[in-house]
Amino acid sequence: MQSGLPENMLSLTNVSAVYMGSILALRNVSLSVPRGSMIALLGPNGSGKTTTLKTISNLLSLDRGRVTKGSIVYEGKPIHGASPAQLVQNGIVQVLEGRRCFLGLTVDENLAVAANNTRNTDHRIVSGAEEIYAFFPSLARQRRKKVEMLSGGEQQMVAIGRALLAQPKLLLLDEPSMGLAPKLVSQIFETIRNLNRTLGLTILVAEQNASVALKHSDYGYILNNGSVTGGGEVAELLESEEVKYSYLGQPPDKAQRQGNDLSATNWMT
């Protein structure tokens, strides 16, 4: 760990967010992401995972949403109100839900868009597209193909590779497993964990598939209805009733109470 930098790369304190001025999507969300960790953000459909990631990257501002209260501190500085493009230059890079590759562009071009628009030189984590192709050899063979011709798993690799070329310090991943076969889901998570370990990249990953996500993460948070209802070490979470309910997508009262026992503040140092 480098000296002088806070141990938490990112922390959210009591963050609330709305869409279109009135639809409350997050309520008092607090969570922290220690430097070098991989954190899973779990929760059923509509629980606010995507919104949480977008409040951090401020892509929320492109969805007619905004943060109404709370603070977001990244590398010791509040980042509320910074433009998404500025945040990318500071190292917060999000892989959007559904991959969102530039389908009509080639694999090479998809990667080049990120590489061309990255100005920061102080924290380069990958040297260039060739390094991405070394990570994902199946992309190398198709580099001149349009991305719309690639399989879902390959598109996810393009999306991740593209994000890496934006030189993130904090990578936000939104449901990387979406629409992929179970075997591919494990592979993608292994790859992500590998990036976390070998590149020292701090990762916050939103995921509905709790078992896979927890298997490859250090900590997990659980969102329900826009609030954090639980959080803790993965081993602890795997045992909790809360998670067992989340698998089923039900947030009953019992789970809420259980969740509070493991509330985020317990281990937020």
């Binding site: 892509l59 492109l62 998404p84 959007l96 530039f102 009509g104 868009v113 061309n116 628009n117 934006a166």
Partner: peptide, 17 residues
């Protein structure tokens, strides 16, 4: 190329800077 990326998906383009 950046212009074409924005035309394809402007939010995705913003997400990579």
């Amino acid at each position: 190329l950046s212009l074409r990326a924005v035309a394809e998906d402007h939010q995705a383009a913003v997400s990579v800077g």
